[in-house]
Nucleic acid binder design. Structure first.
Lengths: 182, 182
DNA sequence: GTCAATTCATCAGCATACTGACGATATCGT
DNA sequence: ACGATATCGTCAGTATGCTGATGAATTGAC
């Protein structure tokens, strides 16, 4: 391996891409018998935690782009894991709720999800794992706004929608990257 | 934010996915005027470092799946950044080489790439950055085989193909995940 | 040397992701 | 009340990424 190669291969961005590929492959492998993806799992759990939330709020919770969530929840609905009903107070929205089958899926897949998280960090020693997770959280938190799909938990009220009210006032969308011409 | 939310949001896999989104967004933003992606950059630099290599070897160098590389090099070729000629010793392969325009692209985009790497790690303190990069390399290296596109540098000879020979004996492909039924 | 096994590039199919746009609806200022 | 503005879900277009398959070509066992 030449120096030229190391310069590319050891770039933070390059290593992060590879780690994401690895984490994703481990999840798919562990959860093979469920035919389920990391994003679908995140969406399902978030919907369970906040019954009745709308799609945009769901995006804010799991840091996913709005234009991607439609397909994801569509697949969950097709498999009968969630229900999608029109919002009552805001007729633009869809209120998402986990079905009994969805709750079962969350329960059954849990061991595979936990095993995945262990496997990802397995190469590190116990104390290193703590350090790594701290820095990872720090990096993601401080860089949050650089993503198109930043985490926005303040858009959430505890148990949003459980008593009817689905979504809520939207947070201000701060400076977006200016338009790119492609 | 409830405990249920933190359990999901602080999972290693979830944080890694978000960090990858952030790193990618930072790259696209910094390299906006070049209309270039991280993967295209990795491919272009690897081709420059190993003139004449074939597509499968390129996959091994930048840890990309073989079924994806065709589109990537196709785009590079369409923009005149690389040339793709049929292999001489092995007529199944395509020998890849960077053109003058490709070399110019690498030179011109370099500041944006470097800025991206700085921005990704910016939230950490200088000594933390070193620790994080060490652990990141360790995680990727030790988990390498779990990816469908593991890094395989031993498939490379110094300056492969420069004197005619394009690719080389293929390494053994160790245990693959058994077939999944979807 | 011949044939079985392997490898290369590619393909169809699916899933995640981002950009920029759209019609339908809400909200806000006045 | 009403018009400007913003937001919701969706869509078309593009790019990355994986699974499993294919035809063409090579390699290896014998």
């Amino acid at each position: 391996m030449s120096d030229d190669d190391s310069r590319l291969i050891d770039m933070p961005g390059h290593l992060i891409r590879r780690l994401q590929q690895i984490a994703s492959a481990l999840f798919l492998d562990q959860a093979k018998s469920f035919d389920f993806t990391p994003v679908q799992y995140a969406a399902l759990v978030a919907i369970k935690n906040h019954a009745g939330l709308d799609q945009t709020t769901l995006c804010n919770v799991i840091a996913l782009d709005r234009s991607t969530i439609g397909d994801v929840v569509g697949r969950l609905e097709k498999r009968g894991l969630i229900s999608r009903t029109n919002g009552t107070t805001d007729r633009r929205t869809k209120a998402l709720r986990v079905t009994a089958a969805g709750r079962r899926m969350i329960r059954d897949i849990e061991p595979a999800v936990m095993a995945t998280q262990r496997l990802i960090l397995a190469p590190l020693k116990a104390n290193e794992r703590v350090t790594f997770m701290q820095m990872l959280k720090h990096l993601v938190h401080l860089n949050n706004e650089h993503s198109r799909a930043p985490l926005r938990l303040h858009a959430l009220q505890p148990n949003a929608g459980v008593r009817g009210r689905a979504s809520t006032a939207q947070v201000v969308r701060p400076r977006r990257r200016e338009a790119t011409r492609r």
